[in-house]
Amino acid sequence: MESLYLLVPLSVALVFVIGWVFWRALEGGQFDDLERPAHDILADDENPVQVQVKRAD
């Protein structure tokens, strides 16, 4: 039972880490257009080597 006193605070810390990661993704614009990626997978890459990931903002 003593492990609880370590693991529960650890889980809280983890929640905040995950929250921070999500916040970064959100501010990076990853959730601004949720439709495009779904269409992207249907199109073949012409030249996979040269594909660069660019964000609009």
């Binding site: 889980s11 929640v15 995950i18 929250g19 959100l26 501010e27 959730f31 601004d32």
Partner: peptide, 21 residues
């Protein structure tokens, strides 16, 4: 839209964790 999504995420994750406790 971003603020709404962030609020939603905080609530979702909070709800999940609290349910575990």
């Amino acid at each position: 839209r971003r603020t709404a999504l962030w609020r939603l995420f905080v609530a979702a994750f909070g709800a999940m964790q609290v349910m575990m406790y």
